[in-house]
Amino acid sequence: MMMMSDDDDDSDPQFNVVADYFFVDAEKNPICLSALPIRFEQGTDEATQCKQNIFLRGVADSGITVYTHVVAWKLGLEGKQPVIAVLSVEGSWINLAKPRNSYEEEFRTIFITVRMLHFLRRKPEEPEKNMWSHLRKVFDKFDLRPSKDDFRNHRSLLKLFAEKDLNLAKSQVLQAFIEEGSKTQISEVESDNIEMKQSFIASDEEIEDMVSDGNSESDEEEDDLFDFTCAICDNGGDLLGCDGPCMRSFHAKIGTGEDSYCDTLGFTEAEVEAMKTFLCKNCEYKQHQCFICGVLEPSDGPTAKVFLCNNATCGYFYHPKCVARKLHPNNKVEALEKENKIIGGSSFTCPIHWCFHCKGLEDRSQEQLQFAVCRRCPKSYHRKCLNTL
């Protein structure tokens, strides 16, 4: 079934691209693209049978309104940008442009997964931290905080691509996600009192601009994940980044922190050069301080008492009670509910990721909307908001 507005003749109008799109089931309830079976072959025959009736709605490149029955989808990862297309019941492939903003949450996890696959296919040897850096750069402007939770519901899709694509089969990062057997958790992005000013899904031009604005070389992406300030003395300089979840940096070599009288980690130049990976003592022994109360606690396994913020570039740990009170300072009931959810395994985003004064998000493309982040507590301020304090 293919229905169009402005259809004045008996032939079906032909179109190649649909924008402002979304999907609905037979009862017209919104449904995610991933509910369709995936196709890897170039042809249109022998598509895996779809278990339910799913319809694409949107606007074609010719301007006509589209409402058509679709039975499969495919993903192209060969170009500079991933290409998503769906197969109509009549046998035509339709490329998808930008989805409708009001349905963005329906597409959130699949779009992050698609971007992850695209990156790892281009750079299968890249370490995991470079992948997170890339995803953050792509989605940072649109209030997305990619996390492992976004991939867990699509593990079968990741496995299929690893089996079908030789480049992806080489990626140890992808294999690790596939083999990970941990229980699926639903990411909770705390957005109390936050005004969303932009859709999280970028057009191809916007994404191209964001990626090209920064240097995409892997060594610079890797450096961007680490703190540019020493965790011991709060000064910059010649630093060594921890490869563990804390992502802190340290003056590692003797003499490198002289200007700030830093004790340093005491390594020699030769010792640092010989390191393949570096874990600070906290990450090595899996014990971290709560960033609010400062108490050192276990941070991994069944005895864990502090938990990591789910933002991919955040290395702060918190007691559930401490962070819940910060997230809901004026509502004890909601704070207790959040505390229990975190204890039960739900992820959370700590309050350092929005402005303490205006509750807005950071926009690094605008100087006045860039964050000044406190190093002693989970508070951040826009530059413009600091001027009003």
Rank of each mutant, 00 (worst) to 15 (best):
V71N: 01
L174C: 06
I64H: 00
K197A: 07
K359P: 01
Y381L: 14
E284T: 15
F139W: 15
N193E: 09
Q52C: 07
Q366V: 15
M4C: 08
I94R: 01
L120W: 05
K197S: 08
D8F: 11
D223V: 11
C374Q: 10
K148S: 09
V295I: 13
E367N: 09
W354G: 03
K305S: 10
C322W: 07
E106K: 10
A176R: 15
F111W: 14
F317P: 01
N95W: 05
A26Q: 11
H353W: 14
F151M: 14
F291G: 08
Q52L: 08
D8T: 03
V24F: 02
A252C: 08
T109I: 01
L87V: 08
M116Y: 06
S34M: 12
G237H: 07
D219H: 15
R375W: 05
H118Q: 08
Q175C: 09
Q14A: 09
P378K: 12
S260H: 07
E188R: 15
D7E: 06
N331W: 05
S216L: 12
V373K: 15
L117Y: 04
N331E: 08
H69K: 15
G76F: 09
T44D: 05
V189K: 07
G79E: 10
S260Y: 04
C377I: 12
F348G: 05
F278P: 01
A335F: 09
S92N: 12
E104C: 14
E78R: 15
D363Q: 11
T48R: 13
S346R: 11
P37N: 07
F228T: 13
V272P: 01
T303Y: 04
W93A: 04
E221Y: 00
A231F: 11
R121V: 03
C242G: 02
I254L: 11
I112H: 01
A47I: 05
C293K: 10
P37I: 13
I110L: 08
V86H: 05
A324Y: 06
D300V: 12
C280V: 12
V114L: 05
L157E: 05
F161R: 02
R39E: 06
D213M: 13
L225G: 10
D238S: 12
Q370V: 01
E334K: 15
K379W: 04
H353C: 12
R383S: 04
D243I: 02
E273N: 12
D234H: 12
I194R: 14
S218F: 07
D149W: 02
V333A: 08
V138H: 00
D165Y: 08
H69M: 03
L174K: 06
R376E: 06
I352Y: 02
C262L: 11
K183V: 14
K148L: 07
H357V: 13
F142A: 14
F161P: 01
Q289G: 06
V66S: 02
K159S: 09
D227I: 10
F200M: 13
G236D: 05
G79S: 14
N193Y: 07
I342G: 05
R121F: 02
A304E: 05
